[in-house]
Write a protein that binds this DNA or RNA. Sequence first.
DNA 1: CGCATTCTAAAACGGTCATTCTAATTGGTA
DNA 2: TACCAATTAGAATGACCGTTTTAGAATGCG
Lengths: 223, 223
Amino acid sequence: MVRTARYSEEDFIEATMALVGEGGPAAATMQAIARRVGAPTGSIYHRFESRAAVLGAAWNAAYGSFTRALAPLLHEGRPRDAALAILPWSRENGHRARFLLLHEPVTLFEDTPPPAPQRLELERLEEAFDGAFRACLAVRRGDTQGADALCEEELARAKFLIFDAPIAILRPHLMRGGTLPPFVERMIAELHAGMPVAATQARGPRPAASHEGGPAGIPSHAA
Amino acid sequence: MVRTARYSEEDFIEATMALVGEGGPAAATMQAIARRVGAPTGSIYHRFESRAAVLGAAWNAAYGSFTRALAPLLHEGRPRDAALAILPWSRENGHRARFLLLHEPVTLFEDTPPPAPQRLELERLEEAFDGAFRACLAVRRGDTQGADALCEEELARAKFLIFDAPIAILRPHLMRGGTLPPFVERMIAELHAGMPVAATQARGPRPAASHEGGPAGIPSHAA
DNA sequence: CGCATTCTAAAACGGTCATTCTAATTGGTA
DNA sequence: TACCAATTAGAATGACCGTTTTAGAATGCG
């Protein structure tokens, strides 16, 4: 090394997350990222090989931070606490939360997928998070046979309850940009009380629809 | 009128929804839309004043079709059936479903908001759908005082249960592009059994977290 | 039968963006 | 101190996109 870098990789990543969080993926042009950092456009290319690499790195940073907050709780078999942990994480990560929870990767990487390094790291992160879900289910069921004998439905239920549903509860408020109202916590807690991930002790195979008829037989659109 | 049009407004709208559903908003360039229809680029401007107008019209078409399927059930006070009605609607509207349910308006209109005609129609549609939610809550509570005395939390709960949560259940499968597995119906039904929109008869003020402690007191990130 | 009007058709324009290029600068090291 | 690779700095390039323009074709009406 001979010259000390003035702008770090993290500077560009932070600027990218802020721009996407505020104005959507299209707002994060290379020139906008550079301007926000105070650097010339070309400097980004000394750290990242392309725009897709910057977006990929930003996504991995946000996703990594998020999963690091939830994974330990999942491994301890505490799905409800994991779902609730999304709240403090969102409050403490303004930029990151809006960036990660308001945009699907599809819309971020639609034009060009991120290059190999970022793609591989994302695969690692996703695999680790998936493993945490499976471990959580195994713990809740008191499984000794490991976390492999899970059907697709069980995993989908867990991901919905711990990940997608809390995010759906938060999304309207993240979008409006204000602070999260206190009732979002109540809603997540109620959700987990009424539709548990998996029963701890034997509690009957499934809660089953309690009133107003079973789950089968959707009426068609009207009446 | 003097010359019969070869390409209709609906042609361009349909192509737009298909392109966005397949490749995200950036895939729906004016040239791509025209190419898919088989028309020259300029022809679109005989029907729409700008790209934002095309996207807005497409959004309104999809959103209108969706709300027309749900609103009657809401007005009848059948929130569970409304949530379940999203399933057949999605199966019958491949393009539309992926377009509407996989993309937030924020990411569609980030650069330029749609012009007045489309913006106004969207406001009408949103107001009508909002009214349906309020009506549903009023019916469920047996309210005689109308649908105005609703707190923010009640409305947020209803929208989550009937709209956002079912969509969150469907999203992974819409993304993969395959057919919807049968267990998504069970999940929606269970959700409504465990966390009802509003009790029909007096059933106690709130279900309250049944086991493993009340809703208050989130542990911080670990342990 | 021709004309006004609405459309198709395709090329052209202006702007923006990602990326590259050239030159100047920096600061640890020999 | 003199060097030199890594970096800053900012302009230049080439591609693509939304929109406009120009020209020609079709059709109902007088």
